[in-house]
Structure formats: C-alpha cells, structure tokens
Design a protein around this nucleic acid. Structure first.
Lengths: 205, 205
DNA sequence: AAAATAAAAACGAACGTTCGTTCGTTTTCA
DNA sequence: TGAAAACGAACGAACGTTCGTTTTTATTTT
C-alpha cells in the first residue's frame, strides 16, 4: 500500500502555536540572541528536542512570528473602517483606532527592531511586497474620497502616516524613565496628530 | 616609599579607541549578541585578553560607544547654526544639514535599536537627562525668534522634529530591497519636510 | 645620557558554561 | 498499527571571562 500524504487538519499544530507564543514573549523581553531554545522549551512546557518537530531551527521560529504576529493584519481593517467625512476626521479617527490597537501589543515595534538589528530587515523586506499592495489602495482611496487632502503621492501619505506612529512610540521608549518624560504634555499624541494635519507653520493671515 | 597614583596622560588610550571602533562596526553589521569578543579582538588586531585591560566586559564597550558616538554631539551645533529668518526656512535648512550629517553615519539608528532590543533603552535613558536640557533651549529659542511658528510646546516640537527623521530612516530600512521602494518619489524627504511644515490638510479657501 | 624599575599593555591558552542542534527511544494520537 | 509528537541525554562548537606570563612603555635613578 503506497503511503498517501494526506491533508489532515493536524491537531498537533496547537503545540506549534504554543512554541510561537513562548518565543514571542521571550524575544520581546530579551531579544533574539539573548533568548535560548531551552528557555523557549521551558516556557512552552515542552522538551528541548520537541521544538524541532515543529521548527527546523531558531530562525524559523522568528520568521513565523514576523509573519503571523505582524500587526498589519489587524490594523488594515481598522483604517478601512475608520469613519469621518473630512480627511481631518478620518485621520483623527484612524490614528485613534491604531493607537488603541497598538496599545494592546505595546512591544510590537521591538519586533521590527529585532528584525533590523539581527536580520538586516530581510524577512520584512520579503513580505513588504505582499503588504504594500494591500495598503496602498486604501490610502489612494482615502486621498480620493476626502476632498480636503492635499494632493500628495499615496506612498508619501502612507510613509508619513506610519512614520507618525513610529516616531511617537520610539520617542516614548527613549524618554521613559528619564526626567524629561515629566515635561511631556498629557495630550502629546493629540498634538502630534495635529502637527501631521496642519503642520508647524502658522498660516499667513 | 608609598606609591602615589599619578594622573598621567596615558598614551595607550589609542588602543581603547581602536577597540571601540572595531566593536562599533561589528555591532552595526551583526548586532550585539551576534558579535563575539574574539571578533572584536581580531578586527582591532589585539589579543583576546588584551581587551580586558581597557574594558571590564562586553557591555562596557557598548556603553562607551553609546556615549562617545551618539550623533547628538555633532547634530546640536548644526541645528544651532542653521540659518533662515522664517521658521520655514530654518526648519528646511536644519533638516537638510541633519540629513546630510546622518548620511555620513547611516547606521546610527541601529545604535538606538540595539539599545532598545538588548538593553531596554536603559543606557540612553540615563543620559537623556543630560542631553535634553541642552536641546530644549535650542527649540525654545527657535520658537521664540521665528514668529511664524505655531504656538507649540517645545517638547512637542522637539519630539515631532526628531520623529520626522526617525520615521524617514526606518521606512527606508524597511522598504529597501522591496519592489515598493521603486514607487517612492525621488524627493521623498523634501515632501516629508513639507508635510511637517504645512500638514496634509488642504487649507480651507 | 644610560641604566634601572615599576606600571601598563599585550598575549593566548585554558576555564567553565551555555549555545543550537542531533539522535535514538518512548509515548501519544489518529 | 503506523505516523506524529514528545522526550532528554549527548555532541561539538562557541561564548565571555580569567589568569599567569611576557613585552612594551614611561618614569625615575644613576
């Protein structure tokens, strides 16, 4: 009887997700190289060797995390669903939704940083070509529907929009624990969004 | 005869800088944990044990790099020297100077990323309290002298200004190698600065 | 100016530990 | 009953650091 490879639902994939979750937590806490396979196996409550039934090596775990846990999958629908007739309202609302969503996964940025530091962003580069074609039309539509947006290149719009969040969270990371953090106004993010909308220059009267 | 500890100029500090330079290059290329003391000793053309005459351990090398090679020392004078009567001109010029300066040290951002990933930004946090009191007055002065700046909190001004660069370079890192990079307009940075100055919203007629 | 001397720097083998991965075996599951 | 999953000891390699020694450098004494 020739062994047919069957496409079974595979119950044991639960373990795979358990490993992924444990590794994700540890990578976020300690970084990639500082996290050992033994630590991952302990947190996943699995024998060391058992991991290798699900991932061929350590980097494969990280790659899986990058793909499965990247927040863009959750963020994209939020932007699409953001309401508001004017571009101003729309950006305000989608920024708000995005911040609250990222608040649930506050260390998502570290994922990107580990990527850049340890892997020279090679994994992200690979699937950027998959993501961006999904995101760009959204921004093109936003630019088209809301009349009071300046006539900006959609890529620039995307880049500056995402950049607003990057910068917000990075500065937060760099300033936390510092005495300067005290100087920050309570509604910092509101003001950052406002600058994004209207710029820093006073309009000529 | 009691041995008096004297404060000699110490010629051998050249070696210390050689180690620092070699380590800096390797950290940038590979990350912190992925770089071994042996690699550092090889690039510095020094015996493995010799390093420990100048640094007590690996982390001390990184700390020294963070402090000695942080670009803020070179950037601050540039901002102070940037000319332009209007706030618009000033920001334009200082942004231009900053970008060209950072272009000489294109991986400076990685320094911050390694900090965040491997050390939870603890070193930067420590000397933020030293840096920010130097930077803030510059931004306060900028806001005061140039009349056509909106009345923004100086910390917000600083934060959004630096954020503009962070986001610009991060997006560059994440998009490089991707096909989307082709879509980017040539004068991306000019447009980003323009958004910073005037916002994305069309002025009501 | 030369010699003596002590401190600083360089050396590289060696230490103990931990790393990622492999492997033969047992257990669980379909 | 055969495949998938779990196990944990074992492997060789690489890690950061230490150590005793030699070499270099700078200073002090002749």
């Amino acid at each position: 009887m020739p062994a047919k490879t069957k496409e079974v639902p595979k119950k044991g994939d639960v373990t795979r997700l358990t490993i992924e979750k444990a590794a994700y937590e540890l990578f976020m806490e300690q970084g990639y190289h500082a996290t050992s396979m033994r630590q991952i196996s302990e947190r996943a409550k699995l024998a060391l060797g058992g991991i290798y039934n699900h991932f061929s090596n350590k980097e494969e775990i990280f790659k899986a995390i990058i793909i499965d846990r990247h927040p863009y999958k959750r963020i994209l629908p939020l932007i699409l669903a953001a309401e508001g007739d004017t571009a101003e309202e729309f950006i305000h609302n989608s920024a708000q939704a995005l911040v609250s969503e990222l608040g649930k996964q506050p260390d998502f940025l570290k994922l990107m940083f580990i990527e850049i530091v340890e892997f020279d962003a090679q994994h992200v580069n690979l699937f950027m070509d998959e993501i961006v074609p999904q995101i760009l039309p959204v921004f093109e539509k936003v630019a088209k529907v809301r009349k009071n947006l300046r006539n900006l290149h959609p890529v620039i719009l995307l880049r500056s929009f995402l950049g607003m969040f990057f910068s917000y969270y990075i500065m937060e990371l760099l300033l936390k624990g510092s005495a300067v953090a005290m100087l920050l106004p309570k509604n910092s993010f509101e003001q950052i969004v406002d600058i994004y909308l209207h710029g820093v220059i006073k309009e000529s009267k």
